[in-house]
């Protein structure tokens, strides 16, 4: 059975001084981990912010579960906003303890706090011993795991990860990768994962996308992207050349 499309993008344009994002067509599916690769300034984070409706494009259409969003009408309902979340590269936590940070999304939704499930989640992330600790006392890796727990606790349908492991050690990277892949197979969300590490993309991604200067150069299934890349710049990128 073909997976459902969660996002469909057509002729999307977003500009800043000296930069322009141009995506003619792109679909994202439920249950997939879609990895975005590319140099800094390629437009990866801009695309993520557009998908989280934190910014508005200048042109184009974005369909989310069939509902159309266009410039001037790019504000989805609160219910839709609450299906999508982002984990940023630098974890931004409240000046509170770890537990209160994790349950924050549930509190703002007036959703029940399932202690058992949360304890299971934090245990898997290895932060079950930190629940009473203030966020400012956490290491970078711990803070990022708390940020991930906070993002997964309300079972979002779309998870946008903006280089969540960029500054972490291999052990933390492993925990985060395995948690996201496990959540992905259990709950079937759309995961968009920005990474600079193509080995990571190879490990976790179902489809891989290479971007440069606001354009998508290639989108392909993992095996094809890494074994038979179609775009010459993908080949160059994978062989370690500085193609940009």
């Amino acid at each position: 059975m073909r997976p459902e499309i969660s996002f469909h993008i057509e002729n999307l344009r977003k500009s800043y001084p000296g930069f322009s994002l141009r995506i003619d067509k792109l679909s994202l599916y439920e249950g997939e981990i879609f990895c975005l690769l590319g140099p800094s300034g390629a437009g990866k984070t801009t695309l993520l912010r557009l998908l989280n409706f934190l910014e508005e494009p200048e042109e184009g259409k974005v369909f989310y579960r069939g509902q159309k969003f266009i410039p001037g009408n790019y504000q989805p309902s609160l219910d839709i906003m609450r299906e999508i979340t982002t984990v940023f590269q630098r974890p931004a936590l409240l000046k509170d303890n770890v537990w209160n940070n994790i349950v924050y999304p549930l509190k703002i939704r007036n959703a029940p706090i399932d202690k058992e499930r949360i304890l299971e989640l934090v245990k898997e992330l290895g932060i079950d011993n930190l629940l009473k600790q203030k966020s400012r006392t956490l290491s970078g890796g711990e803070a990022q795991r708390v940020a991930l727990a906070r993002a997964l606790v309300f079972k979002p349908k779309v998870i946008l990860l903006d280089e969540p492991t960029a500054n972490l050690d291999p052990q933390n990277i492993k925990i985060i990768e395995s948690m996201v892949t496990k959540y992905s197979s259990e709950w079937n969300p759309t995961v968009v994962w920005i990474t600079h590490n193509h080995f990571q993309a190879k490990r976790v991604g179902h489809r891989i996308c290479l971007m440069e200067d606001g354009d998508i150069l290639e989108v392909n299934k993992n095996e094809i992207f890494f074994n038979q890349p179609e775009h010459p710049k993908t080949k160059a990128f994978l062989s370690g050349e500085m193609f940009y």
Partner: peptide, 18 residues
């Protein structure tokens, strides 16, 4: 207050008031 935190809270589903 860290602007990234406010973006993060909105991305977690907070309303502007929250």
């Amino acid at each position: 207050v860290d602007r990234n935190l406010l973006s993060q809270l909105m991305a977690l589903g907070a309303t502007k008031f929250q």
